[in-house]
Simulated assay, not measured.
Amino acid sequence: MGSEQVLDVAVRRHVFDSELPFQAVLDGIFGGISQPDIESLFRKLGASTSYEQFSGLVRQAQGSAGLMRFWQLDLDTALARDPQARDKAGRRLVRLIAGNPVTMGEMTRHVADAGSYAPVTILIQEMPDGGTRVAYDSVASEIAPYGDGDASAVAERLDGEVLGLLRQVTGTT
C-alpha cells in the first residue's frame, strides 16, 4: 500500500527590475548560459564511458555561469492567442530552463527530490515601460526542508552563480 506526504516548501524568489530592454537582458543571460545542441550533447553524455569524460563534456558545453539552456518556453505566444490577455500581447515572456548535469548529480546524490528543483527556471518578462523583470527561485530555499547540508551547499553554490549572472545582466548591485 502507498502513502502520501505533503511538504511545505517556502521558496525565496529573487526579482530583478531593470531599465534595460528585454532583448539586452536575454542576450546577457545567454552570455552566461550556453545554448548547445542539447540533443547532440545528451547523446554524447549518454555514450560517455567514465565520470571524468562525462564531466569534461559538461564543462566544455557550459556557459560562464556553469549552466546550459535545456529548454526555452516563449510564454508570450500563448498570451497572443488568449482573447482575455490581449492587453498583455506583444510583450515578451520567456521561461528558461537551464542546468548542469554534474551539479544536478551532486545535489540528487544527497537528496533525490532536488531533481524537482534542478534544472533551474529563470523567468524574463518585458515590462510595459520597456524595462525588464527577471525572477528566479532559489534552489537552496526549495531543498531546505530536506535538511541535508551537502545538498544545500551545492544548491547555494548554484544559486550564487545564477544570481551573480542575473545581477550583472540587469545592472543590479
Score class of each variant (00 low, 15 high):
80 A>R: 10
75 L>T: 01
2 G>F: 14
170 T>P: 03
136 Y>T: 00
67 L>A: 07
124 I>P: 01
91 R>L: 14
170 T>A: 13
63 G>L: 02
62 Q>T: 05
161 E>K: 13
43 R>Q: 09
31 G>T: 03
55 S>T: 08
167 R>E: 12
56 G>C: 08
71 W>Y: 13
76 D>G: 07
106 E>W: 07
128 P>S: 13
147 G>M: 10
85 A>T: 12
54 F>H: 12
1 M>C: 08
98 A>G: 07
145 P>R: 09
22 F>I: 07
123 L>I: 15
34 S>R: 00
105 G>T: 10
22 F>R: 03
145 P>T: 09
78 A>Y: 08
33 I>M: 09
19 E>Q: 09
86 R>F: 09
81 R>F: 13
80 A>W: 10
73 L>G: 02
119 P>Y: 04
69 R>A: 07
149 G>D: 13
114 A>E: 01
53 Q>S: 12
88 K>V: 01
153 A>C: 12
101 P>E: 09
109 R>K: 14
104 M>F: 06
58 V>T: 00
146 Y>F: 15
9 V>Q: 08
86 R>S: 10
72 Q>G: 07
40 S>D: 13
89 A>K: 06
60 Q>A: 14
121 T>C: 10
134 V>W: 00
61 A>I: 04
27 D>G: 06
50 S>G: 04
122 I>P: 00
